[in-house]
Design a protein around this nucleic acid. Structure first.
Lengths: 238, 238
DNA sequence: TTAAACTCCGTATGCCTTACGGAAAATTGT
DNA sequence: ACAATTTTCCGTAAGGCATACGGAGTTTAA
């Protein structure tokens, strides 16, 4: 907590021992770099230390442990891109909020793997929430509805981003494109699936495959879903 | 793959060595039990073996490795609750699809932690997709739109379930309720946050807290968001 | 000048996956 | 009936992980 709000709190005071070779911010930045590269399961304290030219155990003099470091990393990336001032109607504002979150998930996919058993409330997290609420302020919603609409947009964005990031990761990791993978698996599936057992899946899957030139088109799905969602909000406002 | 479709493919043939002490299905069920109890990060082959009265390395004669076992577990829980036949209009059908998925995520929260670098197409997964598409069949959507609408509902459901499961996990794990936790942190935050810096967050947060008697009400958020989403689909249909 | 506090890090413990190889068991082929 | 083959079960070991503890050296405060 003190670490999260270190900017407003200032550095404690008396530092009696040797100078620290790096700073807490550098540890956080190194952590973000490791998580960006390897994902959260493969994120380890040793890799952070290596990146900073320190030995493993020295990291523990900067942060109490792995979960706390991850909490600091989350707040750090939340403040990475400043929130652009709102303009236009609530619809374009909410779109900006969703797109901001969508981009962030794609910049740092490990955000979707964070399972904080405790939500760390940092300064950038507070700013974020205030900015998100401002998008729907004055649109004619009650306070509760404002919270619900923002929550809904964030839930959808997180779910869609999860699909998108997973799809990207699959393609990159295996080096096999959607089409190649499908061509390889189709013969097996044809043997194994009772013919005619999946009429809709077959028809729609084929149509989607031809339209997207892939198994899915995550960005298009996101835009489509967001439009429907906002249409739903418009219904609510009348 | 052969393991996934083992029901339709049947058991290979000659089994020359000693009898297997358990079955693949028992391994999968044990795996599900471990994941339900501990979550996916703490899910280990050793715990599965212990639960079956086997030693660690014996598990590898049933399944090739950890990722494959998880793939089998996913398809197994996908077939756990049979898909109820559709009736009523598309709106009630889609609600059933979303609710089915929502319940599944709450029965097996580790589903939201699965990062399959490769999507395993199993029999129950196929049935599921067919059933989901059937919910919007005949409503007047194009094939592409059918896929997009289903994808959108699933994305929102996954995102909302993730929030819900995380909130539940936080409360259960720490043993501290939302209100207790907030009461404990409020004094620190008041010291640390510039007063008046977060007018909307303060107002809306307070209103939400009083309404929900908690920081959030995930089930209510899910229902609210789903209604807006379906309103949006209705707009699309006209 | 001396005591306190702090940084850095070596070591140890106890988890985890999985590669490899050996012993025993069951079936197949003669 | 007997041997060859295949398969199961598992012991061991290698290489990864977080982190508790304590020691050595450094810097500041009294």
């Amino acid at each position: 907590m003190t670490l999260l709000w270190r900017r407003t709190l200032g550095t404690p005071q008396g530092a009696r021992g040797p100078k620290q070779r790096v700073s807490v911010d550098e540890v956080i930045q190194a952590g973000i770099a490791v998580a960006d590269a390897d994902g959260l399961p493969a994120f380890s304290m040793r890799k952070v230390a290596d990146r900073l030219g320190l030995k493993l155990m020295s990291i523990y003099t900067y942060v109490p442990g792995r979960p706390e470091l991850i909490g600091l990393m989350v707040d750090e990336v939340t403040g990475e891109i400043p929130h652009p001032p709102h303009h236009g109607d609530w619809r374009s504002r909410l779109t900006a909020v969703a797109r901001h979150q969508w981009d962030e998930y794609h910049r740092h996919p490990w955000l979707l793997q964070v399972e904080s058993s405790r939500p760390w409330i940092g300064p950038n997290g507070c700013d974020r929430y205030e900015w998100q609420l401002a998008a729907v302020d004055g649109a004619g919603l009650t306070d509760i509805q404002m919270d619900q609409v923002v929550t809904m947009v964030l839930a959808f964005t997180a779910g869609a981003a999860r699909m998108s990031v997973l799809a990207r990761h699959t393609t990159e990791e295996s080096g096999i494109s959607d089409v190649q993978w499908w061509d390889a698996n189709a013969p097996i599936l044809e043997k194994v699936m009772p013919p005619g057992a999946y009429p809709l899946a077959g028809r729609v899957g084929t149509a989607a495959g031809e339209e997207y030139n892939a198994v899915s088109d995550p960005d298009r799905s996101f835009r489509f879903g967001l439009e429907r969602l906002l249409d739903g909000v418009e219904v609510l406002l009348r």
